[in-house]
């Protein structure tokens, strides 16, 4: 990737961030240590953020998590470097994070959630069996 040329034009801050990401990725590769950068805490202009986003590019994986508003997650062009963008219910971006990890925590299913969904699945299965009229909006309940 020919970032080097672009770097010369970029705000110094973005340069520093890219360096930071490189260090974190090195840590992940060598020691398996995960890291993250919260972009909200940094005095970045919207343009800077956009620039960083463009520099990191898009990789093979992207996901959307729908909880308390949308969360967009994508792996950048650099494997192991993820972008997490949390939005609120009003579709406003409330947090941007760069996570350096194998897989972002929020994508993993938690054991307790597995348990409770198992329970619910069983309940639904039973309900399905019991149901007589077959006309219900109960799937709503499963949200």
């Amino acid at each position: 990737m020919n970032c080097t040329k672009e770097f010369t034009h970029n705000a110094p801050f973005v340069h520093v961030l890219m360096h930071e990401i490189t260090v974190l990725l090195g840590d992940l590769a060598l020691n398996g240590k995960e890291g993250a950068i919260d972009l909200r805490g940094l005095p970045l202009l919207d343009q800077d953020k956009k620039q960083l986003e463009d520099l990191l590019g898009r990789g093979e994986v992207s996901a959307i998590v729908n909880i308390m508003g949308e969360t967009q997650i994508w792996e950048t062009a650099y494997s192991g470097v993820w972008w997490l963008r949390h939005k609120d219910t009003g579709d406003k971006v409330i947090s941007d994070q760069v996570a350096v990890t194998i897989i972002p925590e929020i994508l993993k299913t938690h054991k307790s959630d597995v348990k409770s969904s198992l329970e619910r699945l069983r309940t639904v299965f039973k309900t399905e069996e019991k149901r007589e009229d077959g006309n219900s909006h109960d799937h709503e309940q499963l949200r």
Partner: peptide
């Protein structure tokens, strides 16, 4: 106004 909503 769905029953599911009120159920929630």
């Amino acid at each position: 106004s769905s029953p599911g909503y009120f159920k929630d």
